[in-house]
Design a protein around this nucleic acid. Structure first.
Lengths: 234, 234
DNA sequence: AATGATTTTATGTGCATACATAATAATCTG
DNA sequence: CAGATTATTATGTATGCACATAAAATCATT
């Protein structure tokens, strides 16, 4: 048996993948340690480390100090979704993008919102409702609350030409956020805005973003019937 | 101005993040090259590289050889979803998991399925329908087609005790896949299986996995009303 | 001025080495 | 023997150096 030498970390990764797929290393199995693999592959331990770390990042390997590296017994599939600006999303499908501001007002939000944003219950926020359009057909409704304590500039913006969706990205950086996907039944209002039958099954995204421990914005996007969010699985 | 030294790549990353969030480096800006940053931070270029590479991976920086590194002009939010086995998903919520096989048969699939799986139109596949249960209430319906040319062992498995969802993970490795999320209106059948009103808005996941250029399985999971898929945004 | 060859430059990666750290295993101690 | 202490070990990472590679910038040639 000839042992070819692996010059770069990608080829090491490929070989490890091959062994996993060929079930030479089965889920749950402990694989040789980095030093041994480096020797076998004829490369530096650093290179093996890079390859294994990358595979661990993608959920295929479980690594623990001293305990070693093993093939994930339940390889968690990781799907990475790129949450882009809606305009780009529409334009990338080769469709014509349109935008309509429906309302813009300062108001005290319902408790669900202020709780989710961890703002004071009485605190006034900026409330925006808008419609995104693709090829002249309703694409999504955006219902957004903006924390003007964190983004005071938003008060000077009409959001008539640029959607809050887009404006915030370049004007209000955030450190982290939460996102949730679900299905919602079209309310009377939704059905009017998206011109679809009432009680249609609609895809919804809820998102809250934070700058440190202060919430920046909370948004609910409801998409027209048939919307799919797709990505690759690795 | 004192220039603290950064000993590890995480602290370098934190500092870079700070500068981005503080808008010292704005979206689209070209940032100093690795060598300069290394000097400023008092660490090796390798360390800076590690930090910047990691940020580029998460979509916050755009890097190109010779052209340098710049802050992503549209910082694409990336949400990574961990698609786990349904049993684990349920158990992690502290709920009691249950499973019921509804049907198991070899059949020629509808063209939509054979097309999606790139199998011959006349080829027989293994068709499984099952119900996942959380705390004695319906959780999700699984409708799955398995390519028995790729996973012949599946023919020897009854799927009465172990769900295909789980069995495949440990018995049929895959190289890549596609996944899509959408909303679906409950069919008569769905409503019966999930014990919910007809036309309820249900969250659905469609997934096809591949081993090389042969499809392994195609599955549609439809969840009981109210299901949410959540994750963090980075 | 258009085209093609060459240089420059910033990132990408490999390697040897050293030390850090977490977690297990072994040992000691009351 | 339980519990605390110490040793061992595999991964994690920092560093200096070297060279690879892509792409931009420059220069040479027609």
């Amino acid at each position: 048996m000839n042992t070819p030498t692996f010059r770069n970390w990608q080829s090491v990764q490929d070989e490890v993948l091959r062994r996993i797929h060929s079930r030479e290393w089965k889920p749950g199995d402990l694989i040789p340690n980095e030093t041994d693999l480096a020797q076998e592959f004829g490369c530096a331990r650093t290179t093996v480390n890079r390859a294994l770390r990358s595979l661990a990042d993608s959920g295929l390997l479980d690594r623990r100090r001293k305990a070693g590296t093993r093939v994930a017994s339940q390889p968690v599939a990781k799907a990475t979704l790129n949450i882009a600006v809606i305009r780009s999303e529409v334009e990338e499908r080769g469709q014509k993008y349109g935008y309509q501001l429906m309302s813009r007002a300062q108001a005290v939000p319902p408790v669900g919102v202020s709780a989710g944003m961890a703002t004071d219950t009485g605190q006034t926020l900026l409330h925006i409702r808008a419609r995104h359009i693709a090829n002249d057909k309703p694409y999504a409704v955006e219902d957004r609350w903006i924390n003007t304590k964190v983004v005071p500039d938003a008060l000077n913006e009409t959001f008539k030409a640029v959607s809050a969706n887009e404006w915030l990205l370049t004007h209000a950086p955030y450190t982290h956020g939460e996102i949730a996907f679900s299905a919602a039944s079209a309310s009377k209002d939704d059905s009017a805005v998206l011109s679809c039958p009432e009680h249609s099954a609609l895809f919804a995204i809820d998102r809250v973003t934070w700058d440190g421990d202060a919430s920046v914005t909370k948004v609910r996007l409801i998409f027209a019937p048939g919307h799919q969010l797709r990505t690759d699985l690795k």
